[in-house]
Design a protein around this nucleic acid. Structure first.
Length: 123
RNA sequence: UCAGAUGGCCGGAUGGCCGCGGGGCUUCGCAAGAAGCGUCGAGGAAAGUCCGGGCUCCACGGAAACACGGUGACGGAUAACAUCCGCCGGGGGUAACCCCAGGGAAAGCGCCACAGAAAUGAAACCGCCUACCGGCCUAAAGCCGCGGCAAGGUUGAAAAGGUGCGGUAAGAGCGCACCGCGUCUCUGGCAACAGAGGUGGCAUGGCAAGCCCCACCGGGAGCAAGACCAAAUAGGGACGGCACGUAAUCCGUUUCCGGAUAGCCGUCCGGGUAGGUCGCGUGAGGUGUGGGGCAACUCACAUCCCAGAGGAAUGGCCAUCCAUCGCGGCAACGCGAGGACAGAACCCGGCUUACAGGCCAUCUGACGUU
């Protein structure tokens, strides 16, 4: 079972934003390898912009994403990678089961891209 | 019962599963730490950051003045305030009650558009009068001249006290009464102010939220304050060693001689970045009882400990109930939807703004019943 860490610094978020990106109705997933070799660590960060709403809405969106990540990432996450979950306006209204589905789907798509390097996204 | 006024309070509830942050205890461990147990964990506005403070650093000999900014009836409360309470004055409402940027316009400057004759050294367009004086005339009447007046009309937000009577040629505070205003005295009140009496004869148009004057208050920046610990890298300093005891440069004018600098290594020191720790929650504290005060508030005693993060915990999901809304129904009810504004970031006292819905108390008016 890999250890879960939180991303906390702005450079980590910027690096993840340049990595693999997959969007669903309720969230956007960003993924990149962790720079230091920490194969037994999954690092995850959450972010919500002003477009989501006021401070109450942004905090609630991040809490729902955190709850979803706690349910899904220990099962499907890969050690040695950074994940960033970006809230969207639908994060607040989508049912929790659908939110979990969205996250699993985005993870699967991003991992598929990770396993087939040097194709497509590079250009 | 309806309509209204004021003040206060609440801001969904309960349970289950899985989690998060703080501090506590226990166990294991050399330690780092791990596990378990139980405990506490968002608001009335946490918001806007508009005032007032605490706290911290900086500046500063004391005090005053100038500048700048703020406040503005009076008395009180308070650590302080632009807040609050009481009261006064003015305005609004049938009333309960509400509202007021509420010092000074005889210190000075400035402005008062349009309209109007005239807008502040106020004025005479339309008007009113012909008493006095002069002329025509014996005189009266009449006409003319010299003049008098500001009542009425007109404009305007505002036109030099208002209404009435007297008075007059016509008029006029010219005289008088009442009201208003100024001023003096007395009475009541701590005071703002109010009341009564006398007196003046009306003088002082408005704007100070244009400048200004008067009184009082104010040093600046803010927890990203500030204090401490302290890698790596670069650079600084001290000491020691190596190399050289040559050469080079510089200094003591020159020679001699002496000193310094430049290389490498080690140890130490100071400053200090990343990072970390503190600041950081026992406080102008909450609750209760009793005393003082109309009240704001305050005193005494008892009792409680009540968030403390740092990409930032306080949650995710489910069930039932309670409000609310929609549809159907006379109704009971059924089905469905679905929680207002909003998230602590050093703390406290206020103000302002946002807010679904609900509860309580007191008071006012109207109607009805006894």
């Amino acid at each position: 079972m890999p250890v879960m860490d939180r991303l906390k610094t702005r450079p980590d978020f910027l690096r993840a934003a340049r990595g693999i990106r997959r969007s669903t109705a309720s969230l956007t997933l960003e993924l990149c390898p962790t720079p230091e070799a920490l194969d037994d660590h999954i690092r995850v960060g959450f972010t919500a912009s002003r477009k989501v709403g006021n401070a109450v809405a942004r905090n609630r969106a991040k809490r729902r994403l955190r709850a979803a990540a706690a349910a899904v990432l220990p099962l499907h996450g890969r050690g040695g990678h950074d994940y960033v979950l970006v809230a969207r306006t639908a994060t607040l209204t989508r049912g929790f089961a659908e939110l979990l589905n969205d996250l699993s789907g985005a993870l699967a798509a991003a991992h598929a891209r990770l396993d087939k390097p040097n194709r497509g996204d590079a250009n």
